[in-house]
Structure formats: C-alpha cells, structure tokens
Simulated assay, not measured.
Amino acid sequence: MILTRKEQARLFAREGFGRVRGLFAPRAASAPLLSHKAVAGPVPWVIAIMTALTVVAAAGGLALASIARTAQADLAGGITVQIAGPAAGEADRQARAALAVLSGAEGVASTRRLGAGEREDLLRPWLGDATLRTGASGEDDLLVMPELIEVRLSGASDPAAVDRVRTLLAKAAPDASASADMDWLGPLREAISALQWLAVALVALLVSATTAAVLLASRSALTANRETIEIMHLLGAHDLQVARMFQRSAALSAAAGGAAGFAVAEATILVLAGKFAALGPGSSAAGLRWFDWVVLVLIPVAGVGLAAVTARLTVLATLRRMP
C-alpha cells in the first residue's frame, strides 16, 4: 500500500502526538486478572474494629495481672497488728510494749507504728470527718482510734508466722490482734482471675468473628470471579496459584485494618491509663511491662497471618468443589 505525502505526514503527526501524550498522560494499567474488591471491601474496617477491641481486651487482662503481681509483692511477708478496745492511754502502752517485743524477735525484718494522722487517713473514707473530730478541751474524744503496727517479716507471712507473732504479743499486748496482709488479697485475686478469663473469652470471640469475616469475604470474591477462575483452570492454572492471589489481597487488607485498629487501641489505653493513674503503680498502662507491649503489638501481626491463612484455606476448599 502506497501512501501519498499528505497521508504520510498525517500518520507521522498522529504517531508523534500519541507519543507525546503518552509521556504526560500514560495509559491506565490493565485491569487485574481477578477482582479483589470483594476480598477487601468492608474487611479492613471489620479487622480494624476487631483488632482495636482485641488489643484493649488483652491490655486489660495484662494490666490486671500486673495489679495482682504488684499487690502480692507489696503484701508478701507483711503482718498488721491492731490494738483496739482499751482506752487511749492503755492502747498506747500496749503499742509501745508490742514494738519492744517484735523489734528483737527472730524472723521480723522491720516494724513501724502508724501515727495518728495516718490512722485518720485510713478511717476517714469509712467514718467521715465528723466522727474523727475530737471533743473540746477537757472532753473525751468522740472516737478512740485503734493502734496499728506494720510488721515486715524476713520470710512469708504464712499461718505459722502469724501464730508466732500472736504468741509474742500475748503477754506484752493482750488486746492486740495480728493478721497477714495477704488475707484480704484472696477475694481480690479471685476477682482478678475471673476478669482475666473474661478477657481471654472476649479475645477468642473477636478472633472467631475476624475469621468469619475473612471467610465470607473470600467466598464472595470467589463467586464474583468464578468465570475468570474457570478460564484460568482451562489454561492450566493450579488451585494454589489462584489461592495465592486471594491470600495476598486478604493479607494486605488485614495489615491496613490491623494498623488502624492498633493505633486506636493504643490511644484508648493511654487515655485509660491517665484515668486510672490515681490507683497507684501497676494499675495503668505504666504498669504494662515492655514484653506486655510486645504481646499487644503481635496481635495485629497475628491478625494478618490469620486472615491470609483463612483466605487460603477457604479458597482451596471451595476450588476443590468446583468442576
């Protein structure tokens, strides 16, 4: 075919214009072989919500464990001696006698008698200022506060150690009573244990919900791409090649959702830490140790792996049933 000079010039101009346009406005990339929109869709949002809830629940369980450890460390080996009942003068005499006996006793590391101000601070939340207010000059006090002595043993404050302290106080301070500080920790330990199991159950429930969301999204994506998958099978594609495509899409969706969910959860934990800071050390995010934070960081990472494995197994199981 012979072109005239006019037609050759027109064709040359058209090709040149096309090349210039390609430099500034390149053609759009070809559509992917499989549409992954059905795999992504709402999955990143669902995983973000599930990850945030899971991290907060896990942080709560770890914080409760930190509270229990801190309380046990503070109270281990501690005994409280209380002298209540006698008049203020007699209670003071017995308190001084108890200190003298306990200070040199075997197995006692230290003793400390609480002052009047400390005892008032302990009773004020329960009795109020009006009850603690003393009478006028020359009048009897409205309340005779019990004497309190903190005893720290060199070993554990087991029942045998408490009995030895009571034996030492029998003659020096007959109105004194001794109790291990760990005694009140029993109900608290049971309550913390119940809350920890609740956190574990919540984490398991959230993991199950995340798995179900990825499973449903993968099945939906398979249905949307059924015809394309059949053609790929006719061309010799294996099920593992198809499953790998869906696995990658699910992993990317889980990574995006997990990162967003972890960011929200971390902000929530820090806000709650400020609210609970007044409860003392070990009761807020400051009580979470470095490996507790490592566990929390691994939650979204595990979510990515869970999403990828779930998508892979779901796609392979569905493809085996396809003709």
Rank of each mutant, 00 (worst) to 15 (best):
Q247T: 14
F12Q: 13
K171I: 12
A204W: 04
G41R: 10
P44G: 01
D175E: 13
A256D: 08
A308L: 06
T268K: 08
G303P: 01
G135T: 00
G287D: 00
M182S: 15
W197F: 09
S283I: 02
R14A: 14
L215R: 13
L222N: 01
Q241N: 13
A170P: 10
L33H: 08
A71C: 09
A176P: 05
L240W: 13
A95P: 01
T211I: 09
D74F: 00
V294D: 10
L3K: 02
A84S: 15
A254Q: 06
Q82R: 15
M50N: 00
A237T: 05
V81Y: 03
A308D: 04
A84R: 15
N225M: 08
A71W: 15
V207Y: 04
A170W: 10
Q72T: 15
R166D: 10
F24C: 08
G135Q: 00
D74Y: 00
G186A: 13
L296R: 00
G78Y: 02
R152A: 02
V304E: 07
L319E: 07
G117D: 12
T210E: 07
L23V: 12
E266P: 04
G280F: 03
F276V: 05
A176W: 04
E120C: 03
A100N: 13
A243D: 03
G258F: 00
V151K: 00
L198E: 01
A250N: 12
S193T: 13
S220P: 06
A221S: 03
H36C: 10
G138N: 09
A130H: 12
R69F: 07
S283Y: 10
V200R: 11
I67L: 15
A278P: 09
P174S: 08
P159R: 03
Q241D: 12
Q8E: 09
A57W: 05
A278G: 11
A173S: 09
A307P: 08
A263F: 02
G303N: 04
E147F: 05
A105M: 02
V20C: 11
D183P: 09
R166K: 13
L206R: 02
L148R: 11
W126G: 02
L34I: 07
D183I: 12
A52D: 02
G261V: 01
V295A: 15
I67M: 13
A31K: 07
R189H: 09
R124M: 10
L222M: 07
A38G: 08
G89P: 11
